[in-house]
Design a protein around this nucleic acid. Structure first.
Lengths: 168, 168
DNA sequence: GCCTCCAGGTTCGGTCACTGAACCGACGCT
DNA sequence: AGCGTCGGTTCAGTGACCGAACCTGGAGGC
């Protein structure tokens, strides 16, 4: 564990955070958890990362208190749900600078139906930092190019953190 | 580049962002850039990461438009400065859950002298999302355990993005 | 009971990125 | 010329990531 994972010598909260969520695939796992993915095989189908890596990451996320495992389902803890602003702002930043074709997903304030702004607020409602439980994911037609069963299920509009909508 | 760096198949802004800032050390480089570090040797002294890795990361960050290189100094571009909320919230999250001893640094709204809140706002001034240029870093005495020249220089209170305050 | 299927992993070579130390060239100073 | 520093590059060794194959425990059928 002396190589590749930790940032010994960096006595810094940012480094501590990155030791937990900074490894390859980890933030994409958390993204999918917000979108409602809960089961090992569903993460696997949607991420196509090696099974061993997924297994390891899920385990360390559970150990770090970001996820809990119950009855074969991984769900975000309160600590994990606090990562929402980071996940959202990363997506905003990536969208602004590195995806010319526009967004693949739009996040809508469930109570009023308007998309939230780049800061994560709902201007009409005056709600700053809309929590993930009050958000719906809408997929922009033709923009999500993935075609696994999980991606298809995630395409129907649904609330964040709710379990994967349709299961065949 | 087929392994380890990109997330081919993830047609997602978050994945795009992580391809740029998601690699090991990258976000710590950006953190230091916000704190005023600009020169290769200063990043090196403060991060103790391999020179080759630092060299590579700085290069890809310049290529991605996050940093610019002029006269041997790396500075954050506008796009790079937009990463501030992410860096700040990562630090907040890491501090809340993984550093029991309390913060090593406090960020103060320069205009009024009060520390900003966990969301990055200044409640007394009513300023939401205080921009990095309006923030001062104050180091909590006895909490920053590093003792390289750069760490010492960074300990004196200074504004974000201003070049390294004292140079011996 | 026994067989089959499937979800949820673990194991196993091979490859690639990270690591630390050594080396290199350009520049400034004496 | 000789020395020091800055900003890298090169290089052998090692650990993490990769994909594919294999294992295991429980559910369902017969």
């Amino acid at each position: 564990m002396a190589l590749g994972k930790d940032y010994a010598g960096q006595n810094c909260s940012i480094a501590r955070a990155l030791e937990v969520v900074g490894e390859r695939w980890t933030l994409l796992i958390i993204r999918d958890a917000f979108f409602g993915v809960r089961r090992f095989s569903d993460f696997l189908a949607h991420l196509d990362c090696p099974r061993a890596v997924l297994s390891g990451r899920l385990q360390t996320l559970v150990e770090s208190g970001v996820l809990t495992k119950r009855l074969g389902e991984y769900t975000l803890t309160e600590s994990g749900r606090e990562l929402w602003p980071i996940v959202y702002m990363l997506g905003q930043w990536g969208g602004r600078h590195f995806s010319a074709d526009g967004p693949t997903r739009v996040l809508v304030h469930a109570e009023c139906g308007t998309p939230i702004d780049p800061a994560g607020d709902c201007p009409p409602c005056g709600v700053p930092g809309v929590p993930p439980t009050d958000l719906e994911v809408h997929t922009v037609p033709g923009r999500d190019l993935r075609d696994d069963p999980v991606a298809r299920a995630l395409r129907s509009p649904h609330r964040l953190l709710e379990p994967l909508p349709v299961r065949p």
